[in-house]
Amino acid sequence: MNMKIAVIGAGISGLAAGRELVKAGHEVVVFEKSGGYGGRLATRYAGKGNEQKLDHGVPYFTATSDEFKELVAELTSKGILSTWSGTFVHRNESGEISEVTPDSEYYFAKEGMNSIGKYIGRNLDIRLNEKVGGLTHIGENRRKKKSWMLNFPTALTESADAVVISAPARQAYALLNTTIDEIETLKMVREIDEVEYESQFTLLTGYSGVQMPDWNALECDDDIIEWISNESTKRESGKNTLVIHTTSEFAKMNMNSDRQKVEDLIADRLITILGGWAGLPEWQQLHFWRYSRVKNPLPHDFMEIRGNDTPLALVGGYINGNTVESAYLSGLKLGKHWAEQFAD
């Protein structure tokens, strides 16, 4: 049977689920509250004329499972992915620098990490800047209506036979609570309520007339800065740019601070680590990731409710891991499972 399936959130897990379900012949509509998709596979256009592309979310990822390696091979064959070859270094608390050899290949998208989401979702009906405010279950008494109604702050609604929530756990929790008196979601709500996230700031900086470092990235043992990505090593459009990723502890302490103060604190530490030139960027931008990394992922591939004509599932980066790969596998496995369950 062909179904209309709503996916809430256009991160890689939701897009992976949607892609599998479209392959199986279902109608899929993806609702994304922001203006872009891919989640933390994000790219910012910055600098003069917004000509430079910087990955201000996930700087790279690795692949271990056969399923994810298959996606990596597909994206590589399409010219989307490339291996991030070069030098990676580590700075200890004493300021000593040593070279690090990665355990596996680092992959990045040559045109920006957001191009991955664009490719995976290319055959999906994706509606950006559409925030779902709640869910209403129509249920077995619906006659010819669909099982679910999605409610939007604009008072508009959209119906669907099934719903996939691929938003962060906190947002999924809020959506599930709008249905808690109508269907048996209490167990699911209690479980995802235990999920905790680390936050993070990223500072994007662009320079002119300086000699950039010869390393791809610098990992730091530091209270403020955790990782510095030399975007100049990824693509020509990222020339003379860095993305500085802070520690979660720093982000937690400063999440409500004045943003200029946050930028100044990061810049001061950047000077200590790299030298005075790093504190004189031509431009800089700050971004805050409230849901950067999950601390205690749930031990499932996905979660679902199937009783009383109420197909609803949760997928995402907080399920069975906290990596790009685990998020993709969560959506992929749910998509394949539902494609089989809802087959004619």
Rank of each mutant, 00 (worst) to 15 (best):
S115Y: 00
S85T: 15
N123V: 00
T83L: 10
S98D: 14
E99K: 14
K118M: 14
T87N: 13
G121E: 03
G121D: 03
K53P: 01
N50Q: 10
G112A: 03
L75F: 10
N123R: 07
T76Y: 10
T64S: 15
E105I: 10
I126F: 01
E111Y: 01
S82Y: 07
F68H: 12
D103S: 10
S104V: 13
A109C: 03
N129A: 04
S115G: 07
R91N: 07
D125A: 11
E105H: 10
K69H: 07
I116E: 04
I116G: 01
K110M: 08
W84A: 14
W84M: 11
R122H: 11
S65G: 09
N114R: 11
E51H: 13
I126R: 02
S94T: 13
G95M: 03
Y106T: 12
E70S: 15
E99Q: 13
T64K: 14
S115E: 08
F61T: 04
K110D: 08
K53Y: 08
I97D: 05
D125T: 05
G112W: 00
L128Q: 09
F61S: 04
T87A: 04
N129F: 01
P59Y: 00
D55P: 02
L135D: 11
S104N: 09
H90Q: 15
T83F: 05
N129W: 01
K53G: 00
G95L: 05
A73E: 13
I80H: 02
T62Q: 12
K131G: 06
E96C: 10
S85F: 09
G86A: 09
T76N: 02
E70H: 12
E96H: 09
K131Q: 10
Y107N: 01
A63F: 09
G133Y: 06
F61E: 14
F68K: 08
N123F: 04
K118R: 11
Y119F: 11
G134H: 08
D103E: 11
S65C: 06
A109M: 03
N92Y: 09
